[in-house]
Write a protein that binds this DNA or RNA. Structure first.
Length: 231
DNA sequence: GCCAACGTTGGC
DNA sequence: GCCAACGTTGGC
């Protein structure tokens, strides 16, 4: 799958412009939205259901979405899209395009208006959580799947039954301080031993998933780190 | 740049 | 349906 990245604002209405980056994956179930459930699953095919197996079961209200803040070319197009890029969009809103992983797509499709997500910087010098954003438009077809020049073009996807979805997100704020992956990892390791809130965090248990749910406990714990000294 | 993790593809 | 080969993600 692709990396995720998102694109920029108002994607929905106008098809032209380029879409910048994209994120990496995401996905939901099969076509039309079937149910609101969150599923995860892995694979691909469109199966669905069973969702609630491990990761999150019920609809999560909190998410973590990865994007690359540093320039990198894919099919000659720069996929860079960091939180500063989101902030710079009109209305500080962008569409999160480019997710090409079924599990991630399913999470995108499960997102509801107003839900909050951490903006995570991946594949860069300092990976970690940079800020908060919210879902301002629920899942709709990712137009980049039909664009031949897009790094995320998918020739197998048909217009009358789009495979990939995206949501629109709006910048809320930067975290009071950048929360590095390394710091989260230290807590995750400790929590595995003592049963703390980050013991099953998807960032570590589902390594390559670019759109992932967080439990309330995970979300609250991560946010509490903002006010603490970097460990 | 290396490479481990892990998802996808395709032969059989 | 198994599984080896391959491709991608993404930390380091």
């Amino acid at each position: 799958m692709p990396r995720q990245r998102k694109r920029v604002s108002g994607c929905a209405p106008e098809p032209e412009m380029e879409a910048p980056s994209g994120k990496r994956t995401k996905a939901t179930k099969t076509e039309t939205l079937d149910k609101p459930v969150v599923e995860e699953k892995t694979a691909d095919s469109p199966k669905k259901d069973q969702a609630s197996k491990h990761c999150g079961n019920e609809p999560s209200a909190y998410w973590l979405m990865k994007s690359e803040p540093e320039s990198r070319l894919e099919k000659g197009i720069d996929v860079k899209f960091g939180i500063e890029d989101l902030k710079a969009q009109p209305k500080q809103t962008a569409c999160w395009d480019g997710v090409r992983n079924y599990q991630a797509r399913n999470f995108l499709r499960a997102m509801k208006l107003g839900e909050e997500a951490f903006f995570y910087h991946s594949n860069c010098k300092e990976p970690g959580i940079a800020g908060l954003m919210k879902i301002v438009k629920e899942a709709y077809p990712d137009h980049t799947q039909f664009e031949k020049d897009s790094p995320h073009y998918d020739p197998s996807s048909k217009k009358d039954n789009p495979k990939w979805s995206m949501v629109d997100v709006q910048f809320i704020r930067m975290t009071k301080r950048f929360i590095p992956l390394a710091e989260l990892k230290v807590h995750h390791q400790a929590h595995k031993a003592n049963g703390g809130p980050l013991q099953n965090m998807a960032l570590f248990t589902r390594q390559r998933l670019s759109v992932q749910p967080l439990t309330q406990g995970e979300f609250d714990f991560v946010l509490s780190l903002e006010d603490k000294k970097p460990s």
